[in-house]
Computed example of a mutant assay.
Amino acid sequence: MFFPGLSFRTTEESLRNAFMNFGQLVEVNLVMDKIANRPRGFAFLRYATEEESRKAIEGMHGKFLDGRVIFVEVAKPRSELRQRVEQNPRY
């Protein structure tokens, strides 16, 4: 799953805590800006099953996390995501 527009205060721990009730989290990847040493505002999460992922999307899309409304999407292939970022640098 892909999470654009996260708060810069969001941590891997806050993501894990918010999403652990929907199933077994296999991976939590909060993308960091290495120069500024802070989150870049997006993350990827992966569950053990697709059913758990669907539950998380249904349960958390449009909810608040760390003071911002979050948007939960199915992650796109890397090439498609790169094209999206180039078209809209907000992500």
Rank of each mutant, 00 (worst) to 15 (best):
Ser79Val: 12
Phe42Leu: 02
Lys63Trp: 00
Ile57Gly: 00
Gly23Cys: 03
Arg16Trp: 14
Ala75Tyr: 14
Glu27Asn: 11
Met60Ile: 02
Pro4Met: 05
Leu25His: 04
Phe8Ser: 11
Arg46Cys: 09
Arg38Lys: 15
Val26Gln: 12
Gly59Asp: 01
Val26Cys: 08
His61Arg: 02
Met60Thr: 06
Lys55Cys: 02
Val69Met: 08
Arg40Trp: 01
Ala18Pro: 02
Leu15Pro: 07
Phe19Ser: 04
Phe19Thr: 07
Ala18Tyr: 08
Glu50Asn: 10
Pro77Gly: 04
Met60His: 05
Arg78Asp: 08
Ala36Lys: 15
Ile70Asp: 04
Glu27Lys: 13
Met20Pro: 00
Glu51Pro: 01
Glu52Phe: 03
Glu51Asp: 11
Glu80His: 11
Gly59Gln: 03
Glu27Cys: 02
Arg38Ser: 02
Ile57Met: 10
Arg46Ile: 06
Gly59Thr: 03
Gly23Glu: 05
Phe19Glu: 06
Phe64Arg: 13
Gly41Pro: 08
Thr11His: 09
Ser7Asp: 07
Glu80Phe: 10
Ser14Trp: 11
Ala43Val: 06
Asn29Glu: 12
Arg78His: 13
Glu73Tyr: 15
His61Cys: 01
Phe19Asp: 07
Asp33Glu: 11
Gly23Ser: 02
Ser79Ile: 13
Asn29Thr: 11
His61Leu: 00
Arg9Cys: 10
Gly62Asn: 01
Thr10Glu: 06
Asp33Arg: 01
Glu73Phe: 14
Gly62Gln: 01
Phe42Ser: 00
Thr10Leu: 10
Val69Asn: 04
Leu65Cys: 05
Ala36Leu: 15
Met32Trp: 11
Ser79Asn: 13
Asn37Gly: 00
Val74Trp: 15
Met32Ala: 01
Arg78Met: 11
Leu6Ser: 10
Pro39Ala: 10
Ser53Asp: 05
Met32Ile: 14
Val74Lys: 14
